[in-house]
């Protein structure tokens, strides 16, 4: 029964990983761009939420709104001002610029918030749970996380395939050179993609703040989880990313069930095994 429980908890944890990954997946899909500071942006959102709620005593609902708005504008501006300038065939500039950003963000967080590990008290969400059987109960927070992940991915899917904006995003992904001939402005379209990705990063950061302890150096591990979920699921497939998150989550909880020290390692090993067996992921699209 402990194994069934591990799997159930792993699936729910996978929701959080899918939230980590969805933004990364979107940015890669639209502009073939991988942001190495992705995890650090998630952690920044978590700190922002923490500071607003515990530092300034702002009502959590307003804090959520503020975090998402702040992330959206920061994402748009970051793309317009900095990242658009390093997009292109040469891989080195985007990798180095975002790696540099990652180091800057981690150390800036360290300077402001110290190295102490922090967590946001989620009140009743922390303790409420639904009992499924003798040994298995589902926490309200993990359940909410999973529902949020499904909701976020469904919303992204809707934007991508059912709206004029999504049409433009897909067209840009196909052939950015001629999109201006359709009246599209690539710099703006890329920034919109980053804006959407950043809102998802904000949601992921808020859940991270409530779910686990985090510190200024927590970003890189989140980047790796996000990346693994994207690759396991298959590039370009948002539902694949959810599946990738779930597989990673289950691998980790089963690993942790064997020995607490194996949690992260088990996730990495399952990822590498899938990379060997199915290099294009489980639900490849591109």
């Amino acid at each position: 029964m402990v194994w069934v429980n591990a799997i159930v908890q792993g699936v729910l944890l996978g929701g959080l990983y899918a939230l980590f990954a969805a933004g990364l997946s979107l940015m890669f899909g639209v502009m073939r761009f991988v942001n190495l500071a992705h995890g650090d942006f998630i952690v920044t959102a978590a700190y922002l939420m923490l500071a607003l709620v515990t530092g300034f005593g702002i009502h959590p609902a307003f804090a959520v709104l503020f975090v998402l708005m702040a992330l959206a504008s920061a994402g748009y501006l970051n793309q317009r001002i900095l990242l658009n300038r390093v997009l292109g065939a040469d891989l080195l500039p985007p990798v180095l610029v975002t790696f540099g950003l990652s180091i800057i963000i981690q150390n800036a967080l360290l300077e402001v918030f110290s190295a102490d590990s922090r967590r946001l008290n989620a009140g009743w969400l922390d303790t409420a749970s639904f009992r499924l059987s003798e040994d298995i109960s589902i926490g309200a927070l993990p359940l909410l996380m999973f529902v949020a992940a499904v909701g976020v991915i469904a919303a992204m899917q809707f934007i991508f395939y059912r709206t004029a904006l999504g049409r433009m995003l897909r067209a840009t992904s196909d052939d950015p050179e001629i999109v201006p001939l359709m009246g599209g402005n690539n710099a703006h379209i890329f920034a919109i993609a980053t804006l959407i990705a950043s809102v998802v990063v904000g949601i992921a950061g808020i859940f991270l703040a409530m779910k686990t302890n985090f510190d200024p150096a927590a970003g890189p591990a989140r980047l790796l989880f996000a990346f693994e979920a994207v690759i396991i699921g298959g590039l370009g497939s948002l539902w694949g990313t959810l599946l990738g998150g779930v597989i990673l989550g289950v691998a980790q909880t089963i690993g942790a069930q064997i020995d607490a020290g194996y949690q992260i390692l088990a996730g990495h090993l399952v990822f590498l095994a899938i990379l060997v067996a199915r290099p294009r992921g489980l639900l490849p699209k591109m």
Partner: peptide, 20 residues
Amino acid sequence: GTWYLIGMGAIAIAVMLIDK
């Protein structure tokens, strides 16, 4: 300390933007 590392990150970004 941290400012040294922040500076290094900023220099790396600047090199990429000014002359890679």
